[in-house]
Design a protein around this nucleic acid. Structure first.
Lengths: 210, 210
DNA sequence: CACAAGAAAATTTTCGAAAATTTATGTTTA
DNA sequence: TAAACATAAATTTTCGAAAATTTTCTTGTG
């Protein structure tokens, strides 16, 4: 792995977890000392992150962490619903034993991570579970879009998840989702997925208003 | 505009037009003399193009122009159908006078370019027409995906378009599409768009087989 | 005092050399 | 001859200084 790849991973994680807050200018000299590398790999990483809308840049004025807003959250969620419902439908049509096993394994790992309560790992297992559902869709483009939208929406989820008290059986939703997918219910599973994402959006919107 | 932006535009155009053929290694020294600039802006451009799947790279082995294949063409076309039919549906629901005027203008310009027969301009007007249809969808993500998929599919269209003799009233299809959109027929217009893209795919597939 | 003009500082962008890595070439050995 | 190994060449990646640009500060002017 090159330094540029490391820079990409580090910056991406720090932005998704909110450690680099929305709107913050990303000064090259500051990044250089923070990540301990030269300009080149950092700039290459920033250019990649720009294509994923995690950072924005203006010509000759450098990069900033992409800002957050409720309208943009809904944009990302609705795009995600469109892409992932179709990818899930395709996966249900095309998925084989390996696909099924991947879902079972990811659901199990997600449950364990949730029980342990470590947010670091939980976040990763959650993304992996949702990816496992659509892994058999057969379209690199859809998987690509899903990955980017997952990162974009995670930025809204992470800060809210911490202080969330209202009761919601998230693991139950995940289990129902997995069951519908494994039972090849090509209409029900995508519908559940859409509800799942939109419900999360409403939860976030409610807390951001307060 | 920075040099990196220029490099991005130049490389993107040369790849889309096939002037840099699929699979060709993109050696930095060669690009440096071709585009007359240093390593940095070129590498930044290549990193952006990688996110758009126009180039692929392996760690420490540099970049190559992304290869073409019939399965990947269909992947791109089907993803494009998914994204643009939804974006068109949304535009029909939300579009205002400016959106309508944009379609009329783009269709007119496309017709003129087609009559003149200059492939350079025709390609640009064609992309602009399809963009104008979905311009009012209100989702930056969908517009972004559409732009990338348009570039990906254009790579297949361009080389075939040259020697295409079989009769097809493309301008008629475009006019029908514009009319259905302007008449706010939210079911018919997306259906026409899907047929339009898939028909192009079949045309290309037929010629690539031969 | 508000505002423009100019200088200084901070920052981004670009360059080409140096370091790291891969690929090609040649040599030895079984 | 074929495989293993060393060596050389080619290439990518990274670095830090130099150039270009923007931002901030200072000064002068109406």
């Amino acid at each position: 792995m090159t330094l540029a790849d490391t820079a990409y991973d580090s910056l991406r994680r720090d932005i998704m977890r909110g450690h680099l807050p929305p709107g913050q200018p990303l000064r090259l000299e500051a990044l250089r000392s923070r990540y301990d590398m030269g300009f080149s790999p950092l700039r290459e990483a920033l250019n990649r992150l720009q294509s994923e809308r995690l950072v924005v840049s203006a010509s000759m004025k450098g990069f900033i962490v992409a800002p957050l807003s409720l309208p943009e959250m809904w944009e990302a969620i609705e795009a995600r619903v469109l892409v992932e419902t179709e990818a899930l439908r395709l996966s249900i049509l095309r998925g084989d034993d390996v696909w099924e096993a991947g879902i079972v394994a990811a659901l199990h790992a997600l449950g364990r991570a949730a029980a342990r309560g470590e947010p670091e790992a939980l976040e990763a297992r959650h993304a992996e579970f949702h990816l496992s559902l659509i892994a058999a869709c057969g379209s690199g483009w859809l998987l690509d879009f899903a990955r980017k939208l997952s990162a974009a929406t995670e930025r809204y989820r992470a800060p809210v998840l911490a202080g969330d008290t209202a009761p919601r059986d998230v693991q139950g939703e995940h289990a129902a989702l997995a069951e519908a997918a494994l039972a090849r219910r090509a209409d029900e599973a995508p519908a559940l997925l859409a509800v799942h994402y939109r419900r999360t959006g409403e939860r976030i919107a409610a807390r951001m208003a307060a």
